[in-house]
Design a protein around this nucleic acid. Structure first.
Length: 255
DNA sequence: ATGGCTTATTGTATAAGA
């Protein structure tokens, strides 16, 4: 079973890339973030023609998450229950007896901003919810754009970035608290190239100079950990014309 | 010397992303 996540930075713009990528990679699950469209604009038809079912939790202009699969998508859940949030950042569903949780975690803008405070509150709500979800669904994978680089090696210049969003101690602590629920960073279960990143700034030739961050992750529960076969970042879509600033992460499971 | 992008909006500048 092949699971993947990709922040597409507008599905309206990136649909051709997504369709090409689905055809080339045929994942069993693709989680999307930043669809940036209302559900009425979501391309269910084009995806269906490509052999993919989809569930979408979207809104105009910002945020928006989706789960795509050629298999039956069951028991879809929208948003974090009991956490009031206008922003569409969560969708979850069961596919082939794996609970798929797709998240677009808050960016946070700057550590002294209200958006950062919202990010920390949001991460706390996610943690509380997932603790309960893991008891309900032991086979669980948490895929998405976390907007957290968990370790210095996940940042191209940890000294320049020290204390800033994506790498601040509080954010990294929140990431560790997710691991403490019994989740595992599938990417780090395997030998990886140095300076592996999943996002590069559009500016300053970030991609060409590999000035990136690893902020897109696939965490897996204890029961799925032993089933992990490989995890890799696919840089190919970042090289296309008009790319998303993020690129897909792919996990292969023996399921 | 460097090098300042991309998206959406009822827009022709601004906000947000990371």
């Amino acid at each position: 079973m092949k699971l993947a996540t990709w922040n597409v930075n507008s599905l309206n713009v990136r649909l051709p890339h997504v369709l090409d990528w689905l055809e080339a990679n045929r994942p069993d699950v693709l989680c999307l973030q930043e669809t940036k469209q209302e559900d009425s604009k979501f391309p269910y038809g084009a995806l269906k023609e490509a052999g993919y079912n989809a569930v979408h939790n979207g809104q105009k202009t910002y945020n928006g998450v989706a789960i795509l699969s050629p298999h039956l998508i069951e028991n879809a859940q929208f948003d974090i229950p009991d956490y009031a949030d206008e922003q569409k950042r969560v969708i979850a569903a069961s596919i082939n007896s794996v609970r798929i949780v797709c998240v677009y975690i808050v960016n946070g803008q700057a550590v002294d901003s209200e958006k950062y405070a919202y990010k920390m509150r949001w991460l706390n709500a996610l943690n509380i919810w997932l603790e309960n979800e893991l008891t309900k669904y032991p086979n669980l994978a948490l895929l998405g754009d976390y907007n957290i680089a968990p370790d210095d090696r996940d940042c191209h210049d940890p000294i320049a970035w020290e204390g800033q969003i994506l790498v601040s101690p509080q954010e990294r602590e929140a990431f560790q608290k997710l691991l403490q629920l019994g989740l595992h960073d599938s990417f780090r279960l395997f030998e990886q190239p140095e300076k592996s990143f999943s996002w590069w700034d559009y500016r300053m030739m970030g991609f060409r100079r590999n000035l990136g961050m690893r902020i897109d992750h696939i965490l897996v529960s204890n029961t799925l950990k032993d089933k992990c076969q490989s995890c890799m970042i696919d840089k190919a879509p970042r090289k296309l014309e008009r790319p998303s600033d993020h690129t897909p992460v792919i996990l292969e499971l023996s399921l």
